Amino acid sequence: MKKIFGAIVATTLLFTAAAGGSLISPTTAEAAGVTYKDLKVGYSIIISGSSFVVTSGSDVVSVSQYGWVTGLKVGSATIKAYDSSGVLTWTYYINVTR
């Protein structure tokens, strides 16, 4: 019985690895959502999350602690949103236009 169980586990691991999968839960980057938004200079939108980090384009947008994103100038920005535990939940790609 142990040999059969061992063979089943080994086969499962082999097929999972061959398919590029994992038997563990996805990492935060794999589980996070993505949104693309267009925004005009001077306009605002609200995004979801508990905390936010502008990873690129901090001169293009501003984001408040509550998720209000305002377009400051034409360009592109990336904002990462985290839940209250600090887990990445969403990535926002913002395109600011006139």
Rank of each mutant, 00 (worst) to 15 (best):
T27Q: 14
L72I: 10
V96R: 03
D38I: 03
V63T: 02
G33I: 03
I45L: 13
I4E: 08
T27S: 13
E30W: 09
A17Q: 05
L39V: 00
S44A: 10
G75W: 04
A18V: 03
S22E: 08
T78C: 03
V87F: 12
S50N: 15
S48I: 05
A81Q: 01
S85Q: 09
G42M: 06
I79H: 03
T97N: 15
S64K: 11
F52G: 02
G75N: 06
S85W: 14
W68V: 13
K80Y: 12
V60R: 00
I47D: 02
T55C: 05
Y82D: 08
I45V: 09
A81C: 08
A81I: 03
T28E: 14
S84N: 11
T16I: 11
Y82M: 10
G67V: 00
G86R: 10
V96L: 13
T55Y: 06
V41N: 05
V74P: 00
L23M: 09
V34K: 15
D83Q: 09
A29T: 02
G49A: 12
L13E: 02
A19V: 03
L13Q: 01
A17S: 07
T16Y: 08
F15Q: 07
A7S: 13
S48A: 13
K3H: 08
G75P: 07
V63L: 01
A81P: 01
S84Y: 14
A32V: 06
M1P: 02
S51V: 06
L23Y: 13
V60I: 15
V9D: 07
K80S: 14
V60M: 04
V74N: 15
R98V: 03
P26L: 06
A19F: 12
Y66K: 13
S62Q: 10
A32W: 01
A10K: 05
L88P: 11
Q65N: 14
A32E: 05
Y43P: 01
S50M: 12
T28L: 09
K37Q: 07
M1I: 00
F52E: 02
T16R: 13
Q65S: 14
S85P: 05
T28G: 13
G33L: 02
S76F: 10
G21K: 06
G67H: 00
F52T: 05
A18N: 08
I45G: 04
I47G: 03
G21E: 08
